[in-house]
Structures are given as C-alpha cells and as structure tokens.
Simulated scan of single mutants.
Amino acid sequence: MKLSPTRVLDLVADFLVATIAAWIATRVAYSSFPPISVLAGASLYPVAAIEVALAFVIRARVNDREIGDGRHQLHPITVARAVALAKASAHVGAIASGIWLGFLFWVFPQRGTLRAAAADSPGAIVGLLAGAALVGAALWLEYCCRAPEDPTDDTATT
C-alpha cells in the first residue's frame, strides 16, 4: 500500500467546516465560554516545534542513507510513524485554525461592546497562528520522510 501525501484540499475542507461550526457555536454559546488566555492559544506551538526538529533529524538520516534496521540506523517503522504523526497533525492544525478563526469571526466585531471579547481576541489570534504553524510543521515533516528518488543505473541499461 502506497501512502499518498496529504491533500491540501482535505486540509482546506477541515478548516472551512471547523470555521463554520466554531462561528455557530460561539454565536450561540459565547456567554458560557471561559476566558481565553494566550497560553490556551499557544498550546500547539510546542508540538509544531517538536515536529520541525524531528523533520530535520529524519531528513538528515534520509539524505545520509541511514534508514534501515542496523545498529545506528533509523528504523523504517519510526519513519512511517512520523509520517502518520505528520498526517494527523496537519489535520489537527487545520481544524484548530478553523476553530480559532470561527471564534474570531464572532468575537472580533464585538471587541468594542464586550470587554470579554476584547480580552479573548489575543488568545484566539495566537491560537489561529499556532494551528497554522502546526500545519506547516506537519507538512514539512511529511515531506522530509519521503524516500529519495532511486538513482537510475544508466550503465546497466546501455
């Protein structure tokens, strides 16, 4: 079974559905939401940072042809797990970004009339950017996990 790259259209669909659902939920139930802190919005940054670091490690191993089941090699199952993590994280990041944007669509215009909306906006903006950072990190990790192109053996074919 060949695993295909994450489709951008799937991420856009996740993002749009989450945005609409969050806007509706915020419009209906904002008064019962707890205050949104900047830390709540920033919760995905550490995951994105870990995935970027993992991407660089895997990329270096792939480029040095250090993938295998040898003693000092990176096991192929580890790379496959990293791909699964990347694919899942890309979707989580798209959904999180959509949720924060839907929240902002309702909260941002209310900033002048509701003090709570003004206080919640910075955390939501940080969350939107954190979700986008996670999508970027996940797509980078997925890219770094690709197998190198097989070199052609021109001498064998001539």
Rank of each mutant, 00 (worst) to 15 (best):
V126R: 08
V92K: 02
I95L: 12
L39H: 02
G41C: 00
L85C: 03
W106A: 11
L114H: 10
I36P: 00
A130H: 00
A138Q: 04
G136S: 11
I50G: 07
R71Q: 09
V38P: 00
V38I: 14
S32P: 03
A18V: 03
I67Y: 13
V62D: 10
R111K: 11
E142N: 05
D10I: 15
A86E: 06
D154G: 08
D120M: 09
G41A: 01
G102R: 03
A22D: 03
S89L: 02
F103N: 00
A60T: 12
G131Q: 02
R71C: 06
A40F: 06
F103K: 00
A40V: 08
A82P: 04
S43P: 05
M1Q: 09
P109V: 07
A82D: 06
I50H: 08
A156I: 09
T6N: 07
G68A: 11
D14H: 10
V135I: 15
T26G: 03
L54D: 03
F56C: 12
F108A: 15
A40I: 06
A124C: 05
Y30G: 05
A90G: 15
I67Q: 08
T155H: 13
E66S: 14
F15G: 03
S43M: 05
V62L: 08
G102W: 05
V47R: 00
D154F: 14
T152Y: 13
F15D: 03
R111I: 11
H75T: 01
R81E: 11
I20M: 07
I20W: 06
V8W: 12
T78P: 04
A29K: 08
R65F: 12
A116L: 13
A25T: 08
G123A: 10
I50E: 07
K2G: 08
D153F: 11
A40L: 09
P34K: 10
V8C: 08
Y30S: 10
D10H: 15
V126G: 09
A60P: 04
L16R: 02
G102T: 05
P5Q: 10
I67L: 11
F108L: 15
P34N: 07
I36D: 01
G136E: 02
I50Q: 12
D10C: 09
A55H: 06
R59D: 09
E66P: 06
H75P: 06
L101D: 00
D14I: 02
I20K: 02
A49H: 05
L101Y: 01
V28I: 09
R71S: 12
P151F: 07
I50V: 14
C144A: 15
V52G: 05
I67W: 12
R27K: 06
I50N: 09
R115N: 07
A133P: 04
R61H: 12
L3T: 14
L74Q: 06
L141C: 09
A82G: 05
T113I: 14
F15Q: 07
T157E: 14
H72M: 12
D10S: 15
D154N: 13
A86F: 00
A82F: 02
L101S: 02
R7F: 12
A40K: 01
A130P: 01
M1G: 15
L101N: 00
M1A: 13
W23N: 04
S31A: 10
P109M: 10
G136M: 09
Q110M: 14
G70T: 11
T158E: 12
D120G: 04
